[in-house]
Every structure is written in C-alpha cells, then in structure tokens.
C-alpha cells in the first residue's frame, strides 16, 4: 500500500493513472493474497470443501434447524426454559390435539378448505391458462400474462383488505345488488366461509395459473392437429391429449396452492369469523401468551407440517412425479 502512494506522489498526475495496475492484477500479484490462496486452493478437493462448507452449514442450520427445533420443543413440558427447572420429555402436547374437539375441528376444517379451494382454483384457472397458452398470439402472451401478474405482486394484507372493501355490508357487491334491486338489505358476505374462500382464491390463483400455463405452453400444437387428423373430437382431444400432457402443471399448481393456503394466518383472521377458525389461528393462539403453551403450539405445528407434507407427497406420487420440478 505504502509503495503505491509514494509512486503516485512522485509521478505526473495523468501518467499516474495509466501506470497503475488494475485491481484484479494487483490482487493476484499481492504476496499475502497469493500465500493465502496457495493454502486454500492447494487441491481441487480442498477447494470443493471450502465451497461446500457454507451452503451445507446454512441448509442444516437455517433450513432444517428450525424444523428440528420445533419437533424437539413439542416433546418438552415447558418452553422457553425457566431458570433452575429442567424440562422433562413428554407426549402430552401431542395428545392434547386428540383430546379436544376445538383443536381437531379447525384442523380438519383447514384441510377441507385447502382441498376444496385447490380444486376450485384449478377449475377457475385452467381455462384462463389454456386461453393464454393456446389462443393468444405468442408475441402478446407476455402482455396478457403481465396483466395477471401485477395484482399478484401486491402483498397478502393489502389484497385481503381489498376483498374486505369489496364484500363489506357497504361494499361494492352489496351496492350493486341493491341498485339492481336483487336485495333490499345488505347481504352479510363478510366473516363467512364464502368471504374467506374468495379471499384465499384471490391470493393463490396465480400459483396455480403459472405452472398450468407453462405446461400447456409446452404442448406442441401439432399434437392436437395429429389427434384431430385421427378423428378425435374437441372433448376427446382435450381429455386424451391436453389434460394428460398438462399433468405436470396441475401437480405443481395444486401442491403450491394447497401448501400456501394452509399456511395463511392474517387472511382468515380478517376475512373469516368464529365459524371458520382455521388451524393457523389455533396454532397462533399458543404463541400470543409468553408462557408454557409453546410446546403445545410446536406439537400442533408439527402435526400440521407432517400432515400437509405427507398429503402432498402422496399426491405427487399419484401424479407420477417427484417433487423435483416443483418450484419452477
């Protein structure tokens, strides 16, 4: 460092710049850098181990760690630990779930909701994806897709609020219904399973649409033409060619929507009512209090995680694929 400064000081101002070496050249010429990298990169094997160390640490520490810790806590009788008291192992937290109807009900309601909503979303978005992939000219597809993506970027809370305004007693839907004379007093849409379903479909539909679109887009047009040549009618073509070939998109889309819709917390709180309590709310209840309810919450979360992942695993297996291409 000192060398460069003295050299710069003595040289002509404009020549100084051109006499300098580039940063990377200087780095490679630096003797301490050379000494360090000589040790670090001595063999290919050593280089690989250095490259691998941090990613392995990160996925174990930050990706797997929280899940394992949650499982562990679910078997403790108290957490966070209090000073001087050794936590004991117990199955009680897991048993709590099976003992009370108020815990089981939201659990099965959540699964039922998620399954119904997944299917509904599939039925709603399939024609949209098909239209985009097969009837819109290739050059325009990006425009049409972007139109759907813009609302998608807006966050969960803002969009939930938008649904609240739409469905409220003085909301746009009721205003129109009254104006049309279909009803004389506002219909209470809010805080029902209807408002909740509409909201969740509103939030998740793009997770279904995008995988469907990309799998439908990949189907070559001449497949359908070939099927038509062989005398297949439109419905037969759809069920024998298009649908099987878009299986991949259906599998990814359904998995995503199912997993995401079981995980919403704010939306059920804001759009649902007492009759629509979902399991996320049940779990969250154990964490509002700072006390020893955490282990029960952890057990309930574990139950939900195991159930959802098992269900999606079975589903993907039935659809004939591994979870590999899931996140495309």
């Amino acid at each position: 460092m000192a060398h460069t400064e003295t050299r710069q000081g003595s040289a002509e101002p404009n020549a100084a710049g051109s006499q300098r070496r580039s940063f990377w050249g200087a780095l490679l010429g630096n003797s301490s850098y050379d000494a360090v990298t000589r040790v670090l990169f001595k063999t290919q094997r050593r280089q690989f181990i250095i490259l691998a160390s941090f990613p392995l640490f990160w996925v174990l520490f930050a990706h797997l760690g929280p899940i394992l810790q949650m499982f562990w806590i679910s078997f403790l009788d108290s957490y966070p630990p209090t000073a001087g008291v050794e936590p004991q192992l117990t199955f009680a937290n897991w048993m709590t779930f099976f003992e009370a109807r108020i815990f089981m009900m939201p659990f099965f309601r959540t699964l039922g909701f998620a399954l119904t909503l997944t299917l509904t979303t599939l039925l709603i978005t399939y024609p949209v994806a098909y239209f985009l992939a097969k009837h819109v000219r290739r050059g325009n597809q990006l425009m049409f897709l972007l139109l759907l993506l813009i609302p998608f970027w807006v966050g969960e809370i803002v969009r939930t609020y938008a649904i609240m305004i739409l469905l409220g007693n003085t909301g746009a839907v009721n205003l129109i219904l009254q104006w049309l004379g279909l009803t004389d007093r506002p219909i209470p849409f809010m805080y029902t399973s209807f408002s909740l379903s509409l909201g969740i479909i509103y939030l998740t539909s793009l997770y279904m649409l995008l995988p469907l679109y990309s799998s439908l887009e990949k189907i070559p047009r001449n497949y359908l033409e070939a099927a038509a040549d062989l005398g297949a009618g439109p419905w037969r073509r759809f069920f024998r060619v298009t649908l099987p070939l878009s299986r991949e998109g259906i599998a990814s889309g359904c998995t995503l929507v199912f997993l995401i819709s079981t995980g919403y917390y704010a939306t059920p709180v804001l759009l649902g009512g007492p009759s629509t309590t979902v399991f996320a709310e049940t779990i969250a209840g154990f964490f509002h209090v700072a006390g020893d309810e955490w282990p029960v919450g952890a057990a309930f979360s574990s139950i939900m995680l195991i159930t959802t992942l098992t269900l999606t695993g079975i589903f993907l297996k039935l659809m004939g694929r591994t979870g590999k291409g899931l996140m495309e």
Binding site: A15, G17, S18, Q19, R20, R21, S22, W24, G25, A26, L28, G29
Partner: peptide, 12 residues
C-alpha cells in the same frame, strides 16, 4: 494482461 499485473498504459 490485466491479470498479469501489467500497467494500464502497457495493456493499452
């Protein structure tokens, strides 16, 4: 040339 540590003017 840069990585060999040649000066900018020489490189040019």
């Amino acid at each position: 040339l840069e990585l060999k540590g040649k000066s900018r003017s020489e490189t040019d």
